[in-house]
Simulated scan of single mutants.
Amino acid sequence: MNTKYFNDDMQQLDPKNINAIHMPVLFLLDTSYSMDGEPIRKLQKSINRFKKDVCKNPQVADIVDICIMGFNGSPYMIQEWRPIGDMSPVELSAEGGTNITAAIEGAISKMRERTNVYADEGIDLRVPWIIMLSDGYGGDVTDIAATIKQRTSEKKVKFWMLGIGGYDKETAAKLTEGKRILELADDAGYDFTDFFDFMSTSIKTVSTSAPGAKVHIDDPTEKPNSTLKHADLDAWLND
């Protein structure tokens, strides 16, 4: 393998420790104009701290690969695939509209790209994670929701979502079927700490577990004074 080590966010870096099982994680961050100000500043701070938390376990730093994409009217790269230990500090800005279908299509394409690298190198992998954070309505997601459902059933991806502020619950319901979705307890608080702590703990636990083993993570919404709650999509849709 011709490993590349360039300090370039748009340059993919090859996997490390290729004899270990790898876990690819792609963050899909809503950077539309409605995220401007406090939301985007706090999101930037939290995702950079997330890298430090995950890498407290040096084993995980080499087996979790991360890609960070942003989206507004279209998806774009913030940081290309790399071992999370090589993740650079992220800088975010907010502008434009929201197109969730294009964003998820772009994320799936990037995930396929990374899993093809694993296949070429004979690297075993765990089920890839796509983690989307969004605060708004992103158009008709019916078709892409069907794609997510199929890929999830085939264990090709696990799709997580964090609903921010006035996010569209109908869109969220289609994308998640009520599974693996959380929302901020305070619509105006924009405190992402508990969500990223939960993601960090989950990723560290899953990535180092024995193949096929059952893992347990405490429900983050049960933490005292949690900034997270479960999204009650059924109640909202049937109100």
Rank of each mutant, 00 (worst) to 15 (best):
N2T: 08
Y5C: 13
F6N: 12
D8H: 02
M10L: 07
Q11Y: 01
L13M: 11
L13R: 09
D14M: 03
N17C: 11
I18T: 10
L28C: 03
T31G: 13
T31I: 12
Y33P: 13
S34R: 09
E38P: 11
P39Y: 03
I40V: 14
R41F: 12
K45E: 10
K45A: 12
K51V: 12
D53S: 15
V54G: 13
V54R: 14
V54M: 15
C55F: 11
N57E: 11
Q59Y: 08
D62G: 13
D62Q: 14
I63C: 02
V64Q: 00
V64R: 04
E80Q: 06
M87A: 11
M87K: 08
E91W: 00
E95C: 05
G97Y: 04
G97D: 09
N99K: 15
I100H: 09
T115S: 08
A119T: 15
D120E: 13
P128Q: 06
I130P: 06
M132R: 02
M132H: 03
M132E: 00
Y137I: 01
T142Q: 15
D143A: 15
Q150P: 02
T152N: 05
V157F: 12
K158Q: 11
K158M: 10
I164Q: 05
I164C: 05
I164V: 07
G165C: 05
G166F: 07
K169F: 09
E170F: 15
T171P: 06
K174S: 04
T176L: 00
L182Q: 09
L184D: 11
A185W: 07
A188C: 12
D194A: 05
F198G: 04
F198L: 08
A210D: 08
P211C: 02
K214W: 01
D219V: 00
T221P: 03
E222C: 01
E222F: 04
K223G: 07
T227R: 08
A235E: 09
W236S: 02
D239S: 07
D239E: 09
